[in-house]
Protein backbone atom coordinates (compact mmCIF):
# COMPACT_ATOMS: atom_id res chain seq x y z
CA UNK A 1 0.00 0.00 0.00
CA UNK A 2 1.34 3.29 -1.02
CA UNK A 3 1.14 6.27 1.31
CA UNK A 4 -0.47 9.13 -0.48
CA UNK A 5 -1.71 12.57 0.23
CA UNK A 6 -5.30 13.58 -0.32
CA UNK A 7 -4.32 16.03 -3.05
CA UNK A 8 -2.51 13.58 -5.21
CA UNK A 9 -4.77 11.55 -7.51
CA UNK A 10 -4.26 7.77 -7.84
CA UNK A 11 -1.69 6.83 -10.43
CA UNK A 12 -2.88 3.85 -12.48
CA UNK A 13 -1.58 1.84 -15.47
CA UNK A 14 -3.78 -0.16 -17.84
CA UNK A 15 -2.79 -3.30 -19.76
CA UNK A 16 -5.28 -4.68 -22.26
CA UNK A 17 -4.74 -5.86 -25.81
CA UNK A 18 -8.04 -4.36 -26.96
CA UNK A 19 -7.32 -0.72 -27.74
CA UNK A 20 -10.99 0.26 -27.65
CA UNK A 21 -11.43 -1.00 -24.12
CA UNK A 22 -8.11 0.35 -22.98
CA UNK A 23 -9.16 3.82 -24.03
CA UNK A 24 -12.63 3.37 -22.56
CA UNK A 25 -11.25 2.24 -19.21
CA UNK A 26 -8.88 5.20 -19.17
CA UNK A 27 -11.79 7.53 -19.87
CA UNK A 28 -13.90 6.01 -17.10
CA UNK A 29 -11.05 6.15 -14.59
CA UNK A 30 -10.11 9.69 -15.47
CA UNK A 31 -13.76 10.59 -15.12
CA UNK A 32 -13.46 9.27 -11.59
CA UNK A 33 -10.46 11.44 -10.80
CA UNK A 34 -7.84 8.77 -11.36
CA UNK A 35 -4.70 9.54 -13.32
CA UNK A 36 -3.89 6.99 -16.03
CA UNK A 37 -0.11 7.16 -16.41
CA UNK A 38 0.38 4.24 -18.79
CA UNK A 39 -1.71 2.26 -21.25
CA UNK A 40 -0.12 -0.80 -22.83
CA UNK A 41 -1.16 -3.88 -24.84
CA UNK A 42 0.66 -6.65 -22.99
CA UNK A 43 1.60 -7.66 -19.47
CA UNK A 44 5.26 -7.71 -20.41
CA UNK A 45 5.21 -4.06 -21.45
CA UNK A 46 3.67 -3.19 -18.11
CA UNK A 47 6.20 -5.24 -16.14
CA UNK A 48 9.04 -3.57 -18.01
CA UNK A 49 8.06 -0.07 -16.91
CA UNK A 50 6.27 -0.69 -13.63
CA UNK A 51 9.19 0.32 -11.44
CA UNK A 52 9.48 3.76 -13.02
CA UNK A 53 5.81 4.65 -12.90
CA UNK A 54 5.27 5.05 -9.13
CA UNK A 55 1.89 3.38 -9.47
CA UNK A 56 -0.89 3.12 -6.94
CA UNK A 57 -2.70 0.47 -8.94
CA UNK A 58 -2.78 -1.38 -12.26
CA UNK A 59 -5.74 -2.64 -14.27
CA UNK A 60 -4.92 -5.80 -16.23
CA UNK A 61 -6.81 -7.89 -18.70
CA UNK A 62 -6.36 -11.59 -17.85
CA UNK A 63 -6.23 -12.87 -21.44
CA UNK A 64 -3.52 -11.08 -23.37
CA UNK A 65 -0.87 -11.92 -25.91
CA UNK A 66 1.19 -13.95 -26.42
CA UNK A 67 -0.72 -17.07 -25.28
CA UNK A 68 -4.13 -15.52 -24.59
CA UNK A 69 -4.46 -17.59 -21.46
CA UNK A 70 -3.74 -16.14 -18.03
CA UNK A 71 -1.05 -13.54 -18.68
CA UNK A 72 -2.76 -11.05 -16.32
CA UNK A 73 -2.72 -13.39 -13.34
CA UNK A 74 0.84 -14.44 -14.05
CA UNK A 75 1.81 -10.76 -14.08
CA UNK A 76 0.02 -10.22 -10.76
CA UNK A 77 1.91 -13.12 -9.20
CA UNK A 78 5.17 -11.72 -10.57
CA UNK A 79 4.45 -8.26 -9.18
CA UNK A 80 3.68 -9.69 -5.75
CA UNK A 81 6.80 -11.85 -5.88
CA UNK A 82 8.83 -8.74 -6.54
CA UNK A 83 7.51 -7.31 -3.26
CA UNK A 84 5.30 -4.64 -4.74
CA UNK A 85 1.99 -4.06 -2.94
CA UNK A 86 0.30 -1.81 -5.46
CA UNK A 87 -3.34 -2.55 -6.09
CA UNK A 88 -4.02 -4.90 -9.01
CA UNK A 89 -7.43 -5.15 -10.59
CA UNK A 90 -7.85 -7.97 -13.10
CA UNK A 91 -10.51 -7.82 -15.78
CA UNK A 92 -11.95 -10.82 -17.52
CA UNK A 93 -14.58 -11.54 -20.11
CA UNK A 94 -15.64 -14.59 -18.07
CA UNK A 95 -16.58 -14.84 -14.43
CA UNK A 96 -14.40 -17.77 -13.44
CA UNK A 97 -14.38 -18.60 -9.69
CA UNK A 98 -11.16 -20.58 -10.08
CA UNK A 99 -9.42 -17.44 -11.30
CA UNK A 100 -10.99 -15.32 -8.57
CA UNK A 101 -9.53 -17.70 -5.98
CA UNK A 102 -6.16 -17.57 -7.62
CA UNK A 103 -6.24 -13.77 -7.71
CA UNK A 104 -7.26 -13.53 -4.04
CA UNK A 105 -4.59 -16.04 -3.15
CA UNK A 106 -1.93 -13.69 -4.47
CA UNK A 107 -2.36 -11.38 -1.48
CA UNK A 108 -4.17 -8.24 -0.42
CA UNK A 109 -4.95 -5.32 -2.67
CA UNK A 110 -6.24 -7.45 -5.52
CA UNK A 111 -9.48 -7.54 -7.41
CA UNK A 112 -11.27 -9.56 -10.08
CA UNK A 113 -13.99 -7.95 -12.18
CA UNK A 114 -15.93 -8.72 -15.32
CA UNK A 115 -14.98 -6.49 -18.19
CA UNK A 116 -18.54 -5.37 -18.73
CA UNK A 117 -18.31 -3.45 -15.43
CA UNK A 118 -16.72 -0.66 -17.48
CA UNK A 119 -20.28 0.36 -18.23
CA UNK A 120 -20.70 1.00 -14.48
CA UNK A 121 -18.14 3.74 -13.91
CA UNK A 122 -18.69 3.86 -10.17
CA UNK A 123 -18.08 0.15 -9.79
CA UNK A 124 -14.85 0.32 -11.73
CA UNK A 125 -13.57 3.44 -10.05
CA UNK A 126 -14.46 2.13 -6.63
CA UNK A 127 -12.78 -1.19 -7.39
CA UNK A 128 -9.55 0.57 -8.37
CA UNK A 129 -9.71 2.72 -5.24
CA UNK A 130 -10.35 -0.36 -3.10
CA UNK A 131 -7.41 -2.38 -4.41
CA UNK A 132 -5.16 0.68 -4.27
CA UNK A 133 -5.93 0.96 -0.58
CA UNK A 134 -5.24 -2.70 0.03
CA UNK A 135 -8.81 -3.95 -0.14
CA UNK A 136 -10.24 -6.87 -2.09
CA UNK A 137 -12.79 -6.90 -4.89
CA UNK A 138 -14.56 -9.92 -6.34
CA UNK A 139 -17.14 -9.60 -9.07
CA UNK A 140 -20.68 -10.26 -7.83
CA UNK A 141 -21.23 -12.67 -10.72
CA UNK A 142 -18.37 -14.87 -9.47
CA UNK A 143 -19.94 -14.93 -6.02
CA UNK A 144 -23.32 -15.67 -7.56
CA UNK A 145 -21.88 -18.61 -9.44
CA UNK A 146 -20.20 -19.92 -6.31
CA UNK A 147 -23.29 -19.54 -4.20
CA UNK A 148 -25.38 -21.26 -6.84
CA UNK A 149 -23.14 -24.27 -6.85
CA UNK A 150 -25.04 -27.15 -5.44
CA UNK A 151 -23.34 -29.43 -3.04
CA UNK A 152 -24.54 -32.15 -0.77
CA UNK A 153 -24.58 -31.21 2.94
CA UNK A 154 -24.38 -27.55 1.96
CA UNK A 155 -23.12 -25.53 4.95
CA UNK A 156 -24.89 -22.49 3.48
CA UNK A 157 -28.15 -24.18 4.40
CA UNK A 158 -27.36 -23.31 8.00
CA UNK A 159 -27.40 -19.57 7.24
CA UNK A 160 -30.40 -17.30 7.39
CA UNK A 161 -31.36 -15.36 4.29
CA UNK A 162 -29.94 -12.15 5.72
CA UNK A 163 -26.70 -13.92 6.65
CA UNK A 164 -26.48 -15.22 3.09
CA UNK A 165 -26.72 -11.70 1.72
CA UNK A 166 -24.00 -10.59 4.13
CA UNK A 167 -21.84 -13.57 3.13
CA UNK A 168 -22.16 -12.72 -0.56
CA UNK A 169 -20.99 -9.18 0.10
CA UNK A 170 -18.15 -10.49 2.26
CA UNK A 171 -17.12 -12.63 -0.66
CA UNK A 172 -17.20 -9.64 -2.98
CA UNK A 173 -14.68 -7.93 -0.74
CA UNK A 174 -16.95 -5.55 1.13
CA UNK A 175 -15.84 -4.42 4.54
CA UNK A 176 -18.31 -4.51 7.40
CA UNK A 177 -18.90 -0.81 6.88
CA UNK A 178 -19.48 -1.35 3.17
CA UNK A 179 -21.91 -4.15 3.92
CA UNK A 180 -23.81 -1.99 6.40
CA UNK A 181 -24.05 0.77 3.80
CA UNK A 182 -25.18 -1.55 1.02
CA UNK A 183 -27.78 -3.39 3.06
CA UNK A 184 -28.93 -0.32 5.00
CA UNK A 185 -28.03 -1.95 8.32
CA UNK A 186 -26.28 -0.72 11.41
CA UNK A 187 -22.58 -1.55 11.70
CA UNK A 188 -23.23 -3.46 14.94
CA UNK A 189 -25.91 -5.58 13.26
CA UNK A 190 -23.51 -6.42 10.42
CA UNK A 191 -20.75 -7.35 12.89
CA UNK A 192 -23.19 -9.67 14.67
CA UNK A 193 -24.14 -11.31 11.36
CA UNK A 194 -20.49 -11.68 10.37
CA UNK A 195 -19.58 -13.36 13.69
CA UNK A 196 -22.57 -15.67 13.37
CA UNK A 197 -21.67 -16.56 9.77
CA UNK A 198 -18.03 -17.26 10.60
CA UNK A 199 -19.11 -19.44 13.49
CA UNK A 200 -21.67 -21.37 11.46
CA UNK A 201 -19.23 -21.94 8.63
CA UNK A 202 -16.43 -22.84 10.99
CA UNK A 203 -14.21 -19.99 9.76
CA UNK A 204 -11.78 -18.04 11.91
CA UNK A 205 -12.02 -14.31 12.27
CA UNK A 206 -9.01 -12.85 10.54
CA UNK A 207 -7.47 -9.48 11.26
CA UNK A 208 -6.51 -9.15 7.59
CA UNK A 209 -9.40 -8.22 5.41
CA UNK A 210 -8.33 -10.07 2.28
CA UNK A 211 -7.86 -13.28 4.24
CA UNK A 212 -11.50 -13.13 5.14
CA UNK A 213 -12.43 -12.79 1.48
CA UNK A 214 -10.17 -15.64 0.53
CA UNK A 215 -11.52 -17.87 3.29
CA UNK A 216 -15.08 -17.20 2.28
CA UNK A 217 -14.39 -17.75 -1.41
CA UNK A 218 -12.48 -20.94 -0.70
CA UNK A 219 -15.31 -22.23 1.40
CA UNK A 220 -17.78 -21.42 -1.34
CA UNK A 221 -15.56 -23.09 -3.92
CA UNK A 222 -15.07 -26.18 -1.81
CA UNK A 223 -18.63 -26.85 -0.95
Amino acid sequence: MVERTEERPLRVAIADDALLLREGIAKVLEGGGIEVVASVGTADELLATIDDLDLDAAVLDIRMPPTHRDEGIVALERIRQDGSEIGILLLSMYATPEYALRVMGAGSGTGYLLKERVSEPQTLVRAVQTVASGGSVVDPEVVEQLVQRTRADDPLARLTERERSVLELMAQGYSNGGIAQTLFLGLKTVETHVRSILQKLDLEESPEHHRRVLAVLTLLGQR
Binding site: L21, G24, V28, M93, E116, V118, P121
Partner: peptide, 21 residues
Protein backbone atom coordinates in the same frame (compact mmCIF):
# COMPACT_ATOMS: atom_id res chain seq x y z
CA UNK B 1 -14.60 -18.69 -28.96
CA UNK B 2 -11.53 -16.58 -29.43
CA UNK B 3 -13.13 -14.57 -32.20
CA UNK B 4 -16.09 -13.93 -29.93
CA UNK B 5 -13.81 -13.00 -27.06
CA UNK B 6 -11.55 -10.72 -29.00
CA UNK B 7 -14.21 -9.37 -31.34
CA UNK B 8 -17.90 -9.27 -30.59
CA UNK B 9 -17.60 -9.41 -26.81
CA UNK B 10 -15.02 -6.62 -26.65
CA UNK B 11 -17.04 -4.47 -28.99
CA UNK B 12 -20.24 -4.98 -27.05
CA UNK B 13 -18.46 -4.13 -23.81
CA UNK B 14 -17.13 -0.98 -25.46
CA UNK B 15 -20.66 -0.17 -26.68
CA UNK B 16 -21.91 -0.55 -23.13
CA UNK B 17 -19.26 1.86 -21.97
CA UNK B 18 -20.14 4.42 -24.63
CA UNK B 19 -23.83 4.10 -23.80
CA UNK B 20 -22.94 4.78 -20.20
CA UNK B 21 -21.00 7.90 -21.14
Amino acid sequence: ERDLHDGAQQHLVAVGMQLRI
